[in-house]
């Protein structure tokens, strides 16, 4: 059969299925609105899954829709979650009386002219000649990130982690010395030390240093294995969620 004819038949089948789905779901839930939204979610799920067969126009449709919808979603959340309460309400409290009345009575804070100026400067990136001004906003973002992260990482990811690693190697309990607890404590201490030695590239990994780096690799492999297992489980649980939606919420085959 002509490929164009096959594509047309597939299109007609899908369109008919959509119409039937909207009709039956609407009848089942007494709401055309719900019929449309439930059908939309179900078919978009199927369109994305169709990629497992091969790239096709239905997958591309869903993919392009996702790009547009997610961009608008984050813009909207930024507008109502940050822009209005943290910028407009701070600079011109009276202007938000109609939309955020709780913030309209507060005093104006003119320091917020700084992010307004930097935000507008960032938009200059779209200008062919004045694009370089956007570097000022970028410099502020980079400076803030560097300043905050320097302290944050030093405190929570460096000092705190080193502090938690330096623990008594022998685990004493009321019943005496715990063999398993002591083994675990020694394992953590040596594991962290060897892992760090593996990441130290300024000295050649030879001799005792090389042996320690080798143990570091083995510890890291265990970590990556555990991480991999968890990632696979998370993905499968997402898949199970989508299947539950298709067979439960949409088709009503499972409770």
């Amino acid at each position: 059969m002509n490929p164009k004819t096959i594509k047309l038949i597939i299109f007609i089948v899908i369109l008919t299925s959509i119409v039937l789905s909207v009709y039956f779901v609407s009848m089942d839930r007494d709401s055309i609105r719900e019929g449309i939204f439930v059908t939309s979610a179900a078919f978009l799920t199927l369109f994305i899954m169709s990629f497992l067969y091969k790239d096709n126009p239905y997958y591309k449709f869903a993919e392009h829709l996702f790009v547009g919808v997610s961009a608008a979603y984050w813009m909207t959340m930024g507008f109502w979650g940050t822009m209005m309460p943290n910028l407009v309400a701070k600079l011109w409290p009276g202007a938000v009386r109609g939309v955020l009345p709780a913030l309209a009575e507060k005093d104006a804070s003119y320091w917020f002219v700084i992010p307004l100026f930097l935000g507008l400067v960032l938009l200059m990136r779209l200008s062919p000649k004045g694009g370089w001004i956007s570097r000022w906003a970028l410099a502020f973002i980079v400076g803030t990130t560097a300043g905050l992260n320097l302290i944050r990482y030093l405190r929570s990811d460096f000092i705190a982690q080193v502090n938690n690693t330096i623990i008594p190697l022998v685990d004493k309990t009321e019943a005496g010395i715990s063999f398993w607890g002591s083994f675990s404590n020694i394992f953590v201490f040596i594991g962290v030390l060897c892992g760090l030695i593996y990441f130290f590239f300024s000295k050649e990994h030879k001799g005792f240093f090389g042996g320690a780096a080798r143990i570091g690799i083995l510890v890291l492999m265990l970590t990556f294995g555990a991480g991999f297992g968890y990632t696979v489980m998370a993905r499968i649980s997402l898949l199970a969620g989508r299947m539950t939606y298709l067979f439960g919420d949409w088709l009503g085959l499972i409770n």
């Binding site: 992260n149 320097l150 990482y153 030093l154 990811d157 460096f158 982690q161 080193v162 938690n164 690693t165 675990s184 394992f187 953590v188 040596i190 594991g191 962290v192 060897c194 892992g195 760090l196 593996y198 990441f199 570091g216 510890v219 890291l220 265990l222 970590t223 990556f224 555990a226 991480g227």
Partner: peptide, 19 residues
């Protein structure tokens, strides 16, 4: 235990890199 040790080594490495 092993996962914690590996994660800790990675976190300390990342922290040094970020700093």
């Amino acid at each position: 235990v092993p996962n914690l040790a590996g994660q800790r080594a990675i976190l300390i490495g990342i922290a040094l890199g970020v700093i």
